[in-house]
């Protein structure tokens, strides 16, 4: 089972809230990120920091030009966590976790991301479609 983890900016933490829009609807949002955690590890705790992803022009993979190339430990830090466990016999998620975050900028280096792996079946499908 999977935890659905939502990272939200806590009240008063968004200085540029008018720029935080859901791209498909144009509505304002304070959601910073969503994780789907199928591992058995514990949910995030206060102090956990979101990662921030970047595209550096010289490192762009021509096969995947839209993908990020680098990441860094980000400026949003979890300050409190709530977990909601469904009381339904069958549900998509083991729990829904809400992590409230504060903006706490840090100086962290950019790290190059590993190459994007493509499994054998998808590689074959790509070759067939391109030929």
């Amino acid at each position: 089972m999977t935890k659905y983890i939502i990272f939200k900016a806590d009240k008063g933490q968004l200085e540029n809230w008018e720029k935080m829009l859901l791209a498909h609807s144009g509505a304002c949002t304070n959601i910073l990120a969503e994780h789907y955690d199928g591992s058995k590890k514990p949910m995030p705790q206060p102090g956990y920091r979101l990662k921030e992803f970047h595209r550096v022009e010289e490192y762009i993979d021509p096969r995947f030009p839209g993908a990020s190339t680098h990441c860094r430990t980000g400026d949003w830090e979890v300050t409190r966590v709530e977990e909601y466990i469904p009381d339904l016999p069958i549900s998509d998620f083991e729990s829904v976790v809400i992590c409230y975050c504060q903006y706490a900028p840090i100086d962290s280096p950019l790290r190059e991301l590993p190459r994007i792996q493509v499994n054998q079946e998808l590689r074959k499908a790509e070759v067939v479609q391109l030929s």
Binding site: Y36, D37, G38, K41, K51, F53, P65, A67, I116
Partner: peptide, 9 residues
Amino acid sequence: ELLRVEPTD
């Protein structure tokens, strides 16, 4: 743990 889904173009 899925952190992010990005469009690749």
